[in-house]
Structures are given as C-alpha cells and as structure tokens.
Design a protein around this nucleic acid. Structure first.
Length: 824
RNA sequence: GCCCGGGUGGCGGAAUUGGAAGACGCGGAGGACUCAAAAUCCUUUGACCUCGCGGUCGUGUGGGUUCGAGUCCCACCCCGGGCACCA
C-alpha cells in the first residue's frame, strides 16, 4: 500500500479496462434518464494538441460526472475527416487523402484515449465513410427537392490559395480567407447554395430559447443582421422632370423613410441591372469607365474608407422623382452601394447621413435638413432624434413617429411597403476540391441538373486519381467518375465534380450519433427524439458563427422536411465555448508552428496531472497562456492525495474510535461542504474553483492526520471517500486506482456523493464586528446566535470599545451570525 | 460608429444574494528532515507607517446611493471580441 504514485502505469491499466469493458457504451433503450454530452468532433490532424486536450477534458469530466449522478450518458466521438489539409498532403506526397486521413485518425484516437477521455466507441462517425457520405448526399437531395438547395450564378468569393470558392462566413473581416489567409477575389460563377436565408428570422428568434453564451448569440444576431425599414419606389423622370409611368421605377431600401423630403439624389450600385437603361448618352463613356475601374478593384480597396468620394461616384445624367416633393433628383453610381444588400440602390439624404453628406458636398448636390439638430450643433449630418423640419405634413414629429407616419404614407399611396432586410446570405456549399463529399447531381444537356436517385447513393470518390497542384479537382479529369447516364432521360450526362463544404458534414453528425448504424435513414425519428437536443455541447469560440449557425439551420430544415422529429427546433440546448490556448502571445495552432505536444507530459506527469492543470489554470471559458499552466503543481497535489489516502501522510497519533470530538465533526462537515461546493461548481462550469475546493480540503485533512491527538478512524475514512468521489470526474485514473485499493470496486460506477444539508451549516462561525463599516474585531460565536446576543458580544470586545471612544453607537446594524456594524 | 465581454497582489485567479477583499495555485522568504541534495513536511508572503500593539491605504479613473460597494447607479479611460460605406 505504501508504493509511490506512478501515474503512467496506473493510467494505461485503467484506459485499457474502460475500453475492454465498454464502460461508457450506452444503448438507446437504457433505462436511466438520457443525457447527451458532445464535444465538437475534431478534424484529424495527427496526435492531439493542447486545444484538443482542453476540449476533451471538459467533455470527459461532464460525461463521468453525469454518469455518477445516475444519468444514462451518450458520449460519442467522431472525425471531421474531409478537408483541405489531407488533399494538400496528397498533392505533396502522392499519398491518397484517405490513407493519409485514416493514419491521422488512428493517431488522434490513441491520444484521446491517453488523456482518459471515454466514449461509446461503437458509435464512431467519420465524415469520409461511405455510410456517412450516403446520408449526407441523401439529405442534399431531400433539400434539393424541397427547394432548399439550388444552383445559381452569383458573385462569389474565390480563394486563390485554396483554389476554391468560399462561403461568406469563411471570409474574414479584412477580406482574407479564414484558412489560408489569402486575399479573397470576386468571381461570377454558377454554384450550389443552401437557402439558409429562408430561416433568417427563425435563426434570430430562437436564440432566445437556447442556453448559450450571450457573446455567441450576439455574434449570430449580428451576422444575421436584421434591419427594419421601408422599400420605396422612385419613378423615372422624363425630360421635363415629370414621373414616367411607362417604365418601372427604381426601388430603394431605407430605414429612414421620415427623411424622404430630404432626398436630393439617388445612387445605384455599379452592378445594378438598370444602369445601362438609366445612363444618358452623354454620360455613357464616363459610366463605363467607372464600372470597369470598380470591377478591377479588390474588395479591400472598395470597402476602404479613404479615397475621395467624387472619384468614387459618377453621374448617370438622368433623374428620378422624389415622391415626397414631386421634384426630380439626379441619379449617380457609387461603389459603396452594394448590389448584395437591400435593392442595390439608395436614396441620398445628406442632412441625416454622414456618408451622403460627404457625397453631396463632393458632387455639389443640395443638402436639405429634415430633422432639427439640437441647439449649438456644429456637425454635418445629424442622425439623432429631433423634430421633423422642411417636411410638410411630417413637421414637428419626432424621428420614431415620423418613421411610422412616413411608412404609412408610402404604403397607402402604393409607393412601397415596409420591409425587413437581413445581412445573412445563402450558404455557398460547393467547393472545387477533391477531398469532400461529392454533390450527388448529374448534368444532362437535355434535362439540366438532376439529382442522383436514392438507390444509387452513395456517390463515392474514386481511388485511382492523380493529384496535380493545378487547383482543378482531379475529378474533372476522371472519365470513369465523370461519365454517367441522366437519371431522367437515360441519355449521356456528366456528374457534378464539385464537392461539399466540410461544414455540411458537421451540420448533422450530432443527429447520426443517436442512431449511427441505421441503414434505412440518416437516423430514426425515435432515436433523435430520445437524445436530441444535445444537453451539453462543448467547443471552441471560433465556431461561433460558421458551424453553429449551419447546424442550427440544418436541424430546422430537417424538421421541416419531416426527417427530424417535429418537436425539435434547436440542435444544442446548452453550449459551452472554451477559451483558446496561446503560446508566446499567439493562438496555438499548427499553421503557426507553436503547438505544445501533450506526449511529453503524459509520459512524465501523466494524464491526470495534465487534465487537472487544464481545469485549474483559469475559468474554462477564458483564453489561457500556456506559460500559466502549472503541471508540476498539479502532479504534486495528486501525490499529496495519494499519500493522504495510502496513509503515508499520517504522522500524528494513531486513529481513534469512540465518540467524535468537535474537530472530528468539523472534518465531517467539511466533507459535506466539499461535495456541495464541487457539485455547484461543476454545474456552473467553474472548474478552477472546484479544484481549489479539493486542494483546500486536502490541506485540512493533512492538518487533521498530523494533529497530536490523531484522526477519528471512521471520520477520516468517510472524508477520504468523499474526496476521492468528487475528484473522480476530474482525475479519473488516480481516483479509480485508489478506490479499487480501498474497497475493490470501480469508482466510476459509484453514486455521486450527496451533501447532507444538516451538515452544511457550521456550528461556530466568525462574527465580524465593524465600527462605522470598518472591521475592528472577529469573534467566534455559535451559528445560532440571536441579534441581542450578537450585539452584546460585539460591545464586550475590547478592540471594539477602543474605537467607540467610550460612547455608545447611534445605530446598530445586526446580521447574525455574520455581522454587527456599530455606527457612531 | 453600433453591439457584447472584461480591468482585483510579483503572476493565474477567488469572493455564488450589497456584509471578512485577495480562497486555491504559481512565484518569493524562512524553518524541519538530510553528511548534502532531491523529494517531503511546516510557517510566512497586498502596499505603506510602526520595535511592537496597532494604524492608514487598497479591486482601471472620477462622482453618487448605502450603516456598509470589487459587487448597485452616473460619467469617463483602457483592453479583448463581433458587426460595419448595410442604406
């Protein structure tokens, strides 16, 4: 029993046992209450790095904790195994991405086991498995049939580094690719899209119902970007300035219809379809020059705020009519008006919009204020509240009222209608890459695009391909893959060679985990209804928009097409986003080459010490610097627990029996307080304080076993039991080993220790005595002390009397048993 | 510009309901054990004044509410993140 703590030997033995016994396998008919814990499935890039360790430690803690609480916990793991790194490696080495990927999966699996993370390994999902591809493609076809997947030609983001198009979500704010960092270009291409915009309002509204970090919900709301306004038509003016009714008017979108009397010009996006029609012959050359210069500009230049506005806009030489005043106003083109938002055209109100003000000054256009700026206003455009002016029937109204009145007028006169706009764009899912899930569509010259029939799924990637660093998917050169028959007419046809964005794979894998072996459907409604929504989802903040928005969209869409159960609306009931790990001030990542490999630590101090360090170093949601980790301190603490439990630390008198002393009872109460604290800390994701509570109690037990009169045998044993039980989810190996040595049982099959409420109340507490709010004395008193008794004892204190200066307090605030404040 | 977070010792952080600021760990100092070291165990560790008893100050800044504020209110500064010529 006195042998030293040998973490490495212990850990291997327990990991082997959990795997062999299938300890964390769970069946769909398990009688315990279902609880679904999921850590975001990893991209298999090789052995685990510290970010993985952090993610899977948090998830594993919860799996083991909820299991001890009596839940039937679903703890699955899978691999997001399609993606560019494997394909790039294939281009470099000639090795097929499948071989490469499966080797990386084996490495990652083994390192997850080495940190002690436990899963139901019967449920493993790999995105590139034919079985998973089949159902991803099946879902695509169902979406296509429901009108949720479509092909369209649109201005798209092209990453020259990745040689593929990207979704809007994959382009960073500075216009670069989130993967490669290359400057993204714009191209007009026909691509496949998912109609996520049809769900914009639901994706926005339902953020109210999910228990997610406010920060993440806020990011999603910003991304969806709802804007309430009015669509207004501006009639085209004839040579005399009168509205023409023989041609359709120009539509603009505005959030400020109240400023309509101040419209002094209108602006079209350079890409607006009616530019040619609305350009006067005299201006044609200038307009063409302008459009050409905009087309060659990068997104960066176009979005930059420098550059003079007169150079960034050009007059069309024609006019539209301001419907509020009935007077004609000139039409311009300007690069800052985007075709992808609103109607691609705006009304210019320089009095209430700073950018319009600058444009008006640059082009010598009139400025009419329609909101009275406050006294002493020296700025240019005034965007604040104030009474309407120069606005006829709106004059005197505040902005909010004027907006409503103006919108009513626009609707009643048939000039337009209220309109909600979203910033969210449809999800561009096609990628011109090989290592992804093939899009199950066939293109026939006579029938157009046709979905592959269900019976022919899955469409798999061929093995006999040559990887060339051309950026063209090798599928384009593979005749065997390319040539097929049209499902509709049977004539010759070509397969779609684009593959799906890997975010498609991760948009439904959490549903497949509920029913991973199903060969008739992606999952049964029954299995999904049992496990979904995921009770606790855990992952990195970097997925706040991308993956988490797509998965929400997929879940809602799958419900709408009758595949997922009707009651489900959100995939993840609770989300926890853990912080990133930095090294040398920069985010730890493979591309930066600043990874710290866990292997060395696992070999020396062991998985439990590493896990404990992750739990202890900082609140789990915070970013953390690797330099702050104290692995040695954690290993030292585990050694202390080991020696305490094995009796090596017991240097005081031998254990007693018989009636417990006051000190014994305090140690016993401490064990119950510990269980209570750790339970509440686990439930509120405060792992660092849970670790602190265990350390504190361990320190208390050291004093106890080293005291001259020795510990009470039964009290000590019960205290050690509780300490081990509450530590079991955090450091599963060492607690399992010590528990087995103590009683021969498996600690992870034991029940979570309940705290006896009667023992949570201390008998003696510290009464703080203040004079004028300053602490002057601390008295040990009975916890049941009454008000008058507390005041009496406070007034009896010598230290307190010194500060009362012989007088008596004017006022006494008593909060027994914690505080007496004497005010003089 | 708009919207979220955050700012506490030498360092990471704790303080759950307005009631002991600094739990726990790291780092530092001292001691025990040892021939010595490692390991281990114990004590101590916010700043300033004081031989000491003790006192004063102290949670980004300035005000306020309160018997009492890290916590609530107002104004501001700084750091991090999201959105943004979005009409």
């Amino acid at each position: 029993m006195q042998e030293r703590y040998d973490a490495v030997a212990i850990e291997g033995r327990w990991q082997e046992r959990w795997r062999r016994e299938g300890t964390y396998e769970i069946d769909n008919d398990d009688p315990r209450p279902p609880y679904y814990v999921l850590s975001m499935y990893p991209y298999p890039s090789g052995p685990a790095h510290m970010g993985h360790v952090r993610n899977y430690t948090f998830g594993d803690l919860l799996v083991r904790y909820r299991t001890m609480r009596g839940d039937g916990v679903l703890s699955p793991i899978g691999f997001d195994s399609f993606g560019l790194p494997a394909e790039n490696a294939a281009i470099r080495t000639g090795q097929h991405p499948r071989t490469f990927t499966e080797d990386r999966i084996a490495e990652l699996s083994s390192s997850l086991e080495r940190i002690g993370a436990v899963y139901d390994m019967r449920r493993v999902i790999r995105s590139h498995d034919p079985d998973y591809i089949r159902w991803t493609q099946w879902i695509f076809v169902k979406f296509y049939e429901a009108g949720l997947a479509y092909r369209d030609s649109a201005p798209v983001n092209w990453c020259p580094g990745c040689q593929t198009v990207l979704a809007n979500e994959q382009v960073l704010a500075d216009g670069t690719c989130e993967r490669s960092g290359d400057l993204v270009e714009h191209r007009e291409l026909a691509q496949w899209f998912f109609r996520i915009t049809a769900y914009a309002q639901r994706l926005l509204d339902d953020t109210a119902d999910i228990d997610w970090p406010e920060r993440v919900k806020n990011m999603q709301r910003n991304w969806i970007g709802r804007s309430v306004g009015t669509e207004l038509t501006l009639p085209i003016a004839d040579a005399g300035g009168q509205a023409r009714d023989d041609v359709p008017p120009v539509e603009v979108f505005t959030t400020r219809p109240d400023t309509g009397f101040g419209i002094t010009y209108a602006v079209l996006s350079p890409e607006h379809p009616r530019v040619d029609e609305l350009t006067a012959p005299a201006q044609r050359a200038a307009v063409e020059d302008f459009r050409r210069s905009v087309a060659t500009q990068s997104e960066m230049q176009r979005l930059s705020t420098d550059g003079r506005l007169d150079k960034r806009g050009v007059a069309c030489g024609t006019s539209v009519v301001n419907p509020f005043t009935g007077r004609p106003v000139p039409v311009y083109l300007a690069d800052y008006v985007l075709m992808t938002y609103g109607t691609g055209a705006i009304m210019g109100v320089p009095g209430e919009d700073q950018r319009d003000w600058e444009f008006a000054v640059a082009h010598d256009l009139p400025i009419v204020r329609t909101v009275q700026p406050p006294e002493g206003w020296e700025g240019e455009a005034y965007t604040g509240d104030g009474p309407s002016i120069n606005s006829d029937w709106l004059d005197g109204l505040g902005v909010a009222d004027a907006i409503e009145r103006a919108a009513d007028w626009v609707e009643s006169t048939g000039l337009g209608r209220r309109k909600v706009n979203y910033r969210l764009r449809d999800w561009l899912l096609s990628r011109q890459r090989f290592w992804g899930c093939p899009i199950p569509m066939v293109c026939c010259d006579t029938c157009g695009y046709q979905p592959v029939p269900e019976s022919e799924l899955p469409i798999l990637l061929p093995d006999d391909v040559d990887f060339l660093p051309t950026g063209r998917s090798p599928l384009n050169a593979h005749e065997g893959f390319l040539r097929t028959a049209c499902p509709a007419c049977g004539g010759p046809a070509r397969r779609e060679t684009d593959t799906m964005d890997t975010f498609v794979d991760s948009s439904w894998y959490f549903l497949r985990f509920a029913d991973p072996a199903n060969s008739d459907a992606p999952f049964s409604g029954e299995a999904a209804a049992r496990w979904l929504p995921v009770d606790q989802y855990i992952g990195g903040i970097e997925h706040a928009i991308l993956h988490l928005m797509y998965a929400r969209f997929f879940t809602k869409a799958l419900v709408d097409i009758g595949v997922a159960p009707a009651g489900l609306s959100e995939p993840f009931a609770r989300l926890f986003t853990q912080g990133m790990i930095r090294l040398g001030g920069a985010k730890m990542s493979k591309s930066r080459g600043n990874l710290v490999a866990p292997e060395g630590i696992l070999d020396r101090q062991g998985a439990d010490a590493l896990r404990l360090a992750h739990l202890q170093v900082k609140p789990p949601q915070d970013d953390v610097d690797w330099e702050d980790f104290g692995i040695d301190g954690c290993a030292k603490f585990l050694g202390r627990v080991w020696r305490l439990v094995t009796g090596e630390a017991h240097t005081g008198a031998p254990a007693r029996s018989g009636d417990p002393t006051a000190a014994d009872l305090e140690v016993d109460r401490g064990a119950h307080r510990l269980a209570d604290r750790v339970t509440r800390d686990f439930d509120r994701w405060s792992y660092n304080t849970a670790v602190a509570a265990c350390m504190e109690y361990t320190n208390e037990l050291y004093r106890y076993v080293q005291a001259p009169d020795g510990p009470h045998g039964e009290v000590l044993e019960a205290a050690l039991d509780r300490l081990l039980l509450v530590m079991a989810p955090m450091v599963p190996h060492v607690t399992a080993e010590l528990w087995e040595r103590r009683c021969g049982r498996h600690i992870h099959s034991e029940a979570w220790p309940a705290a006896d409420p009667a023992k949570l109340r201390a008998e003696r507490v510290t009464l703080v005595v203040q004079v004028n709010g300053k602490v002057r004395d601390r008295l040990e008193v009975d916890a049941a002390i009454g008000e008058s008794e507390a005041v009496e004892q406070a007034l009896a204190s010598e230290r307190v009397r010194r500060h009362l200066d012989g007088g008596s307090p004017r006022r006494v605030i008593v909060r027994p048993p914690k505080l007496v404040n004497l005010v003089v």
